[in-house]
Design a protein around this nucleic acid. Structure first.
Length: 647
RNA sequence: GCCGGUGUAGCUCAGCGGUAGAGCACUGGUUUCGUAAACCAGGGGUCGUGGGUUCAAUCCCCACCGCCGGCUCCA
């Protein structure tokens, strides 16, 4: 007589089954429809395949093709199907890892030559054969020696096997001819995979370690329906249209000139206007909150960065020394600065500081240069010449929490309340290699955490992700294609005040060492504006738009009144252009729409007569609105002043 | 930096071992127009750079540079 298990279903009801019953049987007992839609099951907290015998009582849920977790299971199997096909075509291919990832899956292979696009086509066709064969995906638990025998020809798998602890289950999944060391779970058979597509191949270091061999990774995507697959492909296409590199050219915002150098941005007038508006905005915000502007040199004697500790540690990311002769000017080696912190420290240290001066908040929108590795450059999102909105705050340890709280508020004011952006907060704590005492770290981490909690912010814990000099809060966002980038950052630093022997005189008339916070709200103008371009798809809110209004006379007869309207707008501080070219109105409207100008003010005979404008709003199509010039001016200036997000 | 792909006019792209083409953009002219492309004409390219093979290279080979997709790294 088997032991009876009690399963608690999601609706709260319970069901008694003998131990060893499979989820599939339970699903069938609940209903034939559910059994058909079933992909996997959640038992306790764990997702298992449908044919895994149940061993314990507890919460139980059948996952169908409507549960997001089920998609992960399907994609994981898709990775195995991929490996099955690759092994068939390339029997000697070594296998690495093949997980499900967001929107798809990949598998890494050790092969003597990289896959070609033609290989991918053959492999995808091979996958369709594996699907058509509808191999059951069979789980087997094996002993260590058995596993070692099975994967004797796969050194990468053996490496993984050696890491599995003695108490842990070693499981193997087989579909047809292919066997993989794998934790699972999987769908019941390869036939379940129908709607998939291989996307591309790329090199990837084994275990993400650049000292280890490079494997060939094949990426793919898989969905439960053709409709979902099509929607995904469309989503990728839409995302590509928002790419800031494409829009940057189409809207004439910026360029990168090959003969000047990669990663160096030319801000064209329209892009420069974006940056100008953002600078004004952030400087206003910071000045209103007790920051002081400074300007500091772009180059320095190299010793400064030796003292700060950047050299030689950071040398790989710095441009080499400059000057006459062998990297020297008058016998001294100069470097262009990759960071501003030592500069701001010198401003702090230029006079004696009292505890009454703290927090001392120095801020500078500064250009710095970093010799980023060539393969990492990416439009404006990753550059070599960066314009940081960089600030350094010098304070007493007891001021940390309130200052962090204040900084988080500025971040939310700028990113959240002004732009309506979604961003994530990561609390990065002490790494293995660190400087400073454990007490300092504990105090610092607690200060960051309690500031986050006091704000009611949700954040992820990035354990061990802190800098060697202190913990930090990183603010991250996604670009159009879904890649994650770091924008704002708030970092505590105990190290540099130490290295530069910074002091302030306390109320006790004794010298004390201040703590330092590095902070950036936008991060860099390049990355932030690149991100904004993608976020708004180039259709910037009025206050940011390089060109806010375009005045369009219907014919030459309205040239004078149209010009007068443009002058009125200029006088009101509005960036207005006049398009009185001899092209048709339709042509000029199309031109303005493509340039993503927020407002088109059309002036025909009727409007010229009545002192009105026929207003066309970007993206609103032919819907138009007739209003007086006064009303129009008021509306526009009001929207600019309040930094409204529209139109 | 590493792996793969790629580079033809300002942009998007076609082409091919016999020294280059389209659309858009630009310039000139005609058109004066009521909400997403009027018409006609014209100018514009050392085919990324440097070597090599060849009677002849934009095309084939090599190297370098840039770009794209990943990996690694980071604001």
């Amino acid at each position: 007589m088997a032991v009876q298990l009690v399963l608690t279903l999601p609706d709260g009801s319970t069901r008694e089954v003998p131990a060893g019953t499979t989820p599939r049987t339970v699903a069938q007992a609940i209903g034939a429809g559910l059994a058909r839609a079933a992909v996997a099951a959640r038992v306790g907290g764990q997702i298992v395949e449908l044919d895994r015998p149940l061993a314990a009582s507890g919460p139980f849920q059948i996952l169908t093709d409507r549960d997001p977790e089920a998609l992960g299971v399907l994609r994981h199997t898709a990775a195995h199907v991929l490996a099955t096909a690759v092994r068939r075509l390339f029997p000697d291919a070594g296998i690495g890892f093949g997980p499900a990832i967001e929107d798809g899956f990949y598998y890494d292979f050790a092969v003597p030559r990289p896959f070609t696009p033609e290989d991918l086509e053959r492999i995808e066709a091979g996958m369709r054969e594996v699907v058509a064969a509808d191999y059951p995906v069979v789980r087997e638990e094996v002993g260590r020696e058995d596993a070692a025998r099975r994967f004797a020809a796969d050194p990468l798998k053996l490496e993984r096997l050696a890491e599995i602890g003695d108490g842990e289950v070693i499981s193997v999944y087989r579909d047809g001819p292919f066997e993989d060391l794998c934790r699972g779970p999987h769908v019941a058979s390869t036939g379940r995979l129908q709607h998939f597509k291989l996307l591309h191949a790329a090199g990837a270091y084994w275990r993400g370690d650049e000292r280890r061999p490079m494997l060939q990774r094949i990426y793919g995507t898989a969905w439960f329906s053709q409709k979902d697959l099509d929607a995904y492909v469309r989503r990728l296409e839409e995302a590509r249209k928002r790419d800031h590199r494409l829009l940057g050219r189409q809207l004439d915002l910026f360029s990168i000139q090959e003969h000047v150098g990669p990663g160096l941005i030319f801000w064209h007038p329209k892009g420069a206007m974006l940056q100008f508006q953002l600078r004004r905005f952030i400087e206003d915000v910071l000045l209103a909150r007790g920051n002081q502007l400074v300007y500091t040199p772009h180059v320095t004697r190299e010793e400064l960065f030796l003292k700060s500790g950047h050299l030689p540690l950071y040398a790989e990311n710095q441009f080499p020394p400059m000057g006459a002769g062998e990297g020297e000017a008058e016998g001294v080696r100069y470097r262009v600065k990759p960071m501003n912190c030592p500069m701001h420290i010198l401003v702090y240290a230029a006079q004696q500081r009292s505890y009454r001066d703290l927090p001392l908040r120095l801020t500078e929108i500064a250009n710095v240069y970093r010799n980023e590795r060539s393969g990492t450059l990416h439009g404006m999102l990753r550059v070599r010449g960066l314009t940081m909105d960089d600030g350094h705050i010098f304070l007493r340890p007891d001021q940390i929490e309130s200052e962090i709280f204040e900084l988080l508020d500025i971040v939310d004011l700028v990113l959240g309340r002004t732009f309506g952006l979604e961003y994530r907060l990561d609390l990065a704590t002490r790494p293995a290699e660190k400087l400073g005492t454990d007490e300092q770290w504990t105090q610092a981490e607690q200060a960051l955490e309690s500031a986050l909690k006091r704000r009611g912010a949700t954040y992820r814990l990035d354990a061990g992700g802190g800098a060697f000099y202190g913990p930090k809060i990183d603010i991250k966002f996604d670009d159009a294609i879904g890649r994650e980038w770091q924008g704002a950052t708030i970092q505590l630093d105990y190290q540099q005040p130490e290295r530069f022997a910074l002091e302030y005189t306390g109320a006790d008339n004794q010298p004390h060492r201040p703590v330092m916070i590095h902070r950036a709200i936008f991060g860099t103008m390049e990355r932030f504006i690149g991100f904004l371009i993608e976020h708004f798809a180039g259709a910037f809110p009025l206050w940011l738009a390089p060109e806010q209004v375009r005045v369009l006379p219907i014919s030459d007869a309205q040239a004078a009144p149209a010009r007068a309207l443009r002058e009125r707008l200029h006088a009101a501080g509005i960036r207005a252009a006049l398009d009185d070219r001899s092209d048709t109105l339709n042509y000029r409207i199309r031109d303005a729409e493509l340039a993503k100008v927020p407002y088109m003010a059309v002036v025909g005979a009727r409007e010229a007569q009545a002192g009105t404008v026929a207003l066309r709003v970007r993206g609103a199509g032919a819907k138009q609105e007739i209003l007086t010039q006064d009303a129009f001016l008021e509306r526009v200036t009001d929207e600019v002043r309040t930094r409204r997000r529209g139109p």
